[in-house]
Design a protein around this nucleic acid. Sequence first.
DNA 1: AGTCCACCGGAAACAAGGGGGC
DNA 2: GCCCCCTTGTTTCCGGTGGACT
Length: 402
Amino acid sequence: MPLFRTDPSRIFADRRALDPSFIPSRLPHREEEVERLVLDLSPAARGERPTNVLIYGKTGTGKTAVTRFVGRALNEESGGRAKYVHVNCEISYTPFLVLTKILSELRGGQPEAYTGFSQDYVYGKILSAVSASGVSLVVALDEMDRLMARGGEGLLYLLLDANERLDSGSIGVIGIANDIGITRGLDPRVRSRLSEDKIVFPPYTTTQLMDILRDRARVALRPGTWDDGVLELIALTAAAEHGDARRAIELLRLAGDIADSRGSDRITEEHVVEARRRAEEDYLRRLVETLPLHQKAVLMAICELLNRGAPMITMSVLYGAYSNIVSFAGLQPLTQRRVRDFVHDLATMGLISAEVRSFGREGRTTVVTAKSDPAKLRQILLQDELLGSLGGGGFGGQRTLL
DNA sequence: AGTCCACCGGAAACAAGGGGGC
DNA sequence: GCCCCCTTGTTTCCGGTGGACT
């Protein structure tokens, strides 16, 4: 029996319509937000400076989709008077990378290497490109949160201040962030200039998610392969997780894939349940597999301590366990300060929870507890070449590393 | 009220690596 | 070949600090 099916899909009519990057022709329940953003950017369409705007909302509330949607229209309809550039700060996560991304977009979208040039040089090139063409440049900084820890404020200052230095043309900024508190601690001048307008994207409700899913299903799936019951199950799942539309669409695609691979001619609730299980496991696996080695070792130490029924994992206990594991592997342990950062990172990812607690005379320290299933984590960690080899092949049973 | 523990967490310095200009 | 720029990951340093204990 062949491993792959080559006959046309029984489920999908156009699977791309369920891609995360797909921009649909209409955005249900975001009409107001679209209208508001259009209003903010309309000066740019006439070649004037647009209103700077801050956009807030949790993941999957349509921030990126709305901004791209409006930005694309701006590029198409302004007759070259405006140029919209969308920067994903997950990828361009330093001021320098953002500036080079903007410059290469201004020069036609070909990625160019600017390493070795100074930030000032790239900034100057942007200013002269804008000035020479007289264009209204609109820069959207998506996932701006990522940038703030790495000198994002300086970049914002440069972009917002650019208009003072331009003879012709202008620059407007759209800041897109998950956290509403992102402007706290910003220089008041930067903050007030950036937030000339603020748009908050509320989470989608279950019924709104249903509408979105129905829209997508009509384009992406063959008629008769889905029903409202299936979509509702997906919508309920996503609504439970702060109304995340991206996740809802991903689940629909995965459920479709599962139905397809089983040769079914329709998506059932069973497929959705299976999709949900796989999505969770994939997420965990991806997260853990991409951790740097020492961070994996820290996580492994936590799993081992829990495995041995350690009553409480304090920083010193954890550091001791981590040092053991790393030394086993013939490596030099990193300092406790660094491990502290790792613990903090793991907690941010939701893999563990870490809480600073004081014990009076016994001092103050971070206490770590499990958040995901330690046995499952351990299973994934043992697939790492180095960590897995520590048990001498037959590892994975009851033996521990400590 | 003051002490003291066991770290916490910010900041700065440092090392190494990738890359360009001259 | 040397110098400069940017990035990433880490170490070093050090001024806090919550709350049980005296």
